[in-house]
């Protein structure tokens, strides 16, 4: 896949915009997922994921061909998410994930539409609890946990994405895991 992506990037560099569409198709779900787990909100996650792809395109000339494209796009998306979390004012999106409430989240919308059986509802509640726990983590732990467990990246890749020593990545994952353990042990 990397070969195809690099070919498309060369075409984009020559000014062929359509080639970029294929790159977006390949990575959109993963980038969106990263943003959703970081922000806990469907609208914001989609906005930020789109913004990440636009930034990657605008700065494509600075992309280092030695790197994987995924590393580059994850780095941009992670930085945008962290910026957003830091600037975050209270928001009122319909599907905002507000901890401790049973507001209209993405999962409950799914439930309402399809009339899921009991065990599926339970699993939706579980999913909500997990997302709430992730959302409660301080952003520096949240980032590494999401990259490791949601995106299933190796510690080395995470250290490259965040431009951070491997030791720091490990420490943050350990602390993040401890914090989640305390929140999730009674689920």
């Amino acid at each position: 896949m990397d070969g195809v992506v690099k070919l498309r990037i060369r075409e984009v560099l020559k000014g062929d915009q359509n080639a970029y569409g294929e790159i977006v198709e390949l990575y959109k779900d993963k980038v969106f997922q990263l943003c959703y787990r970081m922000l806990g909100n469907h609208h914001e996650a989609e906005d930020i994921a789109q913004e990440a792809f636009i930034r990657a395109y605008v700065n494509i000339a600075r992309f280092n061909m030695e790197l994987k494209f995924s590393t580059w796009i994850y780095r941009i998306a992670t930085n945008l998410c962290i910026d957003r979390i830091r600037k975050k004012k209270p928001d009122f999106y319909l599907d905002a994930e507000v901890s401790g409430t049973d507001g209209l989240t993405m999962y409950s919308q799914v439930a309402a539409e399809t009339n899921l059986p009991e065990e599926d509802l339970e699993s939706i509640e579980l999913q909500e609890a997990i997302q709430r726990a992730i959302s409660k983590l301080p952003e520096k732990y949240r980032t590494v946990i999401v990259l490791k467990y949601i995106e299933e990246l190796s510690l080395n890749e995470i250290s490259e994405i965040l431009d951070m020593p491997l030791g720091t990545v490990k420490t943050r994952i350990h602390r993040g895991r401890e914090s989640l353990r305390q929140q999730l042990r009674n689920v």
Binding site: Q17, Y20, V24, K28, D29, E46, Q50, I130, Q131
Partner: peptide
Amino acid sequence: LLQSTGSLKTSDNFTAKVM
């Protein structure tokens, strides 16, 4: 639990919006 989270999909017009 973290690994059990289902994978999410973007809306259908995501790529079009980016382009």
